[in-house]
């Protein structure tokens, strides 16, 4: 389970409505995820969609996903449909992380990640082993692997597919 792409760094407190503004609540509520993707980070970094490529990774600081849960899925699906392969951060709002994992989308805290990459560095990370390579600097670092249970959910595509495999 590998993520590979350019790292785009954002600071502490990157909230759901920073990822996709609450101006686009209606797009989220009607599940127009491609529509949400067209406004990704619009107010935080207006040129972002022009410079990112599919597979790129967002690197956030502490308190990723703060704010009211009403806006979580709009933000998560906006990232996913824009082609961002996952969000790594220093710390994350547990409910935001939960919503992402349930949707089969990797959002995971890896303390130290924001010191490991600079904005624009090429990052490769294997979530199963925790082994990360900064391909721009050549540096290698071992992070804590994400638990097998979570990898099972991500590998199943979402938590519904995973739950259907549980004995009831």
């Amino acid at each position: 389970m590998k993520l590979q792409g350019k790292s785009w760094k954002f600071g502490n407190g990157l909230g759901a409505t920073d990822l996709v503004s609450s101006d686009y609540d209606k797009l989220g509520m009607t599940h127009d995820w491609d529509g949400c993707a067209q406004h990704l980070l619009e107010k935080v970094d207006p040129g972002f969609l022009g410079k990112m490529r599919r597979g790129d990774i967002l690197i956030a600081g502490t308190r990723l996903g703060a704010g009211h849960a009403h806006y979580y899925m709009t933000a998560i699906m906006g990232c996913k449909h824009a082609g961002i392969s996952g969000i790594l951060c220093e710390s994350v709002n547990t409910l935001f992380q939960r919503a992402a994992i349930d949707a089969g989308y990797p959002v995971w805290p890896l303390p130290g990640i924001s010191d490991f990459v600079r904005d624009g560095d090429e990052l490769e990370i294997d979530l199963a082993t925790g082994m990360a390579t900064n391909k721009t600097t050549g540096e290698i670092k071992q992070f804590t692997p994400i638990p097998e249970l979570i990898r099972d959910i991500l590998n199943a595509g979402n938590s519904l597919n995973w739950a259907l495999t549980l004995a009831v």
Binding site: A69, Y72, R98, D102, N158
Partner: peptide, 13 residues
Amino acid sequence: PALFGVDPIIVSG
């Protein structure tokens, strides 16, 4: 609070 991702909880308990 499980605003999203309730489907897997409802099928499995």
